[in-house]
Design a protein around this nucleic acid. Sequence first.
DNA 1: CTGTTAGCGCTTTCAC
DNA 2: GTGAAAGCGCTAACAG
Lengths: 332, 332
Amino acid sequence: MTEPRKRQGLPTIADVAELAGVSRAIASRALSSEPRPVSADKRERVLAAAEKLGFKPNLLARSLTTKTVNLVAVIVNHIHDLSDLDLFDLLISQIQSIGKQVIFVRVGSAERIDEFLRNGIAYHVDAALVFSDFADAATVRKMFRNDSVLMLNGMRDASSPAIIPDDQIGISAAVKDAASQGVRTAILVTGRAASPVEQARVAIYKAELQRQKIALISELRGDYSYQSGRQVAASPEWQKADAVFCTSDAMAMGVLDVHRNDFPQNRPQAFRLYGFDDVTLAEYEAYPISSIGYDKTAYISEILKFLTEPDLFNSGEKLVQVPTYFVSRSSS
Amino acid sequence: MTEPRKRQGLPTIADVAELAGVSRAIASRALSSEPRPVSADKRERVLAAAEKLGFKPNLLARSLTTKTVNLVAVIVNHIHDLSDLDLFDLLISQIQSIGKQVIFVRVGSAERIDEFLRNGIAYHVDAALVFSDFADAATVRKMFRNDSVLMLNGMRDASSPAIIPDDQIGISAAVKDAASQGVRTAILVTGRAASPVEQARVAIYKAELQRQKIALISELRGDYSYQSGRQVAASPEWQKADAVFCTSDAMAMGVLDVHRNDFPQNRPQAFRLYGFDDVTLAEYEAYPISSIGYDKTAYISEILKFLTEPDLFNSGEKLVQVPTYFVSRSSS
DNA sequence: CTGTTAGCGCTTTCAC
DNA sequence: GTGAAAGCGCTAACAG
């Protein structure tokens, strides 16, 4: 006569096994989502017992042996930007659809991030999606247990897979659009200089401007924000420019608001304005900003491919580029 | 002579203990953040060994015995709304500052949510912050292991603690503002009728309008979105209204864009417009919408109080209200 | 197909 | 103060 388990708290798989009159191993197999060898009648008894007891597996305990938690870390600097809204909602939804959940880590300006990460569950995730540019690929890789780190911040090396929008396409189209409309002089409003993504982007703008024989008369530094757009818009050089290219829509919105009177409903206008990101907001009537965006669905589908078949990424080419596009609105 | 542990993968506490020449128990105590009895020299040796090995505790294994994971679930419907940006960035940052990490769960329109939840680690969190209104307090409580569920969706019962902005204050002020400016007739643009928060909010609007002797000539249904604001703005009844109250800023933005010509820089204007949420965007020049908001810092600080001292919540009054305010901008 | 037996890595009695 | 040993709940390995 076996001693009945002292039931305290939630039912465990041992309780289920006992009630079903089978061993724990059988119960485990019957309850597994994978097909495992169990006779039909025992499986049924186990399932019934589990149902009756309201048994739910302790995934923490399971992960101890399976070495997988179905958890993905999303590492961001912060979520201030408008463009984040569009992206993360879809991303989370998609990740959940493959049975994984998302742990959101905001590194902000944090110091000692590695210590912070390692003292949290984020350290034990199956994969880390790194949007933040707080560290380079090698450092990030070192910060996590395994190599399943996907760089989405524009930084990359030979070892870590990365998905990066190909800014060249969109910027080229935008500058070409300007040229075709007779633009000869331009101002470039940039974001954080420290960011390598931004540096690359600026370089592309410069090359394309040169190619289209558009003179870059000034480069003004903002920080991607609406407020910084307003600030730089006060520049006196403004009058000499045929076009203004901003590396974020928010800055373009700030510029637009300061110069709103220069943008009558009908052309011609003082200067043509180009943003970047193609945030949903640019569809609002008050901010009809021509912009550069990328296909978020395609981008996220690549991320999911990495999550579901990491090997595929690790064997082949590590860099995936998703194309950007230029969308013309009445600001340009 | 003890067999050295076969080192495979990351160092465990057993490796540390072995290198330090102490038992696993001592190593565990020395590494604990809590003060536990260990002699000074052994503690030092353990710490040194851990450092040398680059040991990091497996929090999943730890949680198996401690029954706590330092993980908080944030349950949302989705993160489409502009007001979400303001809130979640701060919330995540604050939660991280107390050593916990955030698992973000988007329930969307999901069916079988409980099954979904239970199959993820979110089920094992220390606390769940429920912004989504997918279920009432009792159901939500049942969906998690423990009772540490904080209702932030406006739904509540006697058992679950809740933090709710006190809409009354802000709405009352907004309607009073309208009355003081001679408003006699008003249109109310509402959001999802199914939401109990929305129902309560609408009821408050009606009561306040009545109190101020403002006739509610029409109630139009939107869905909080900009687009729905544009749609309802086409209503012919519009001309008869002195004021329009929207239960979201996004809808107010839509209304504003459709009637932009009715809003000249100088008064008087066709009608006064009031939004709700006080999203950062309302500070942009193009959408100077008078709105109702609440102190997000105070709100989040209450949430953190719940996370750090749940007992305090469970013993005392379960409902915490944070005051709302009315902010007047040029739209009203 | 089935049950027994070891663990996963860590904390925690409980004697010493 | 210390260490042996017993788990936490689950899955995997290995004989039957």
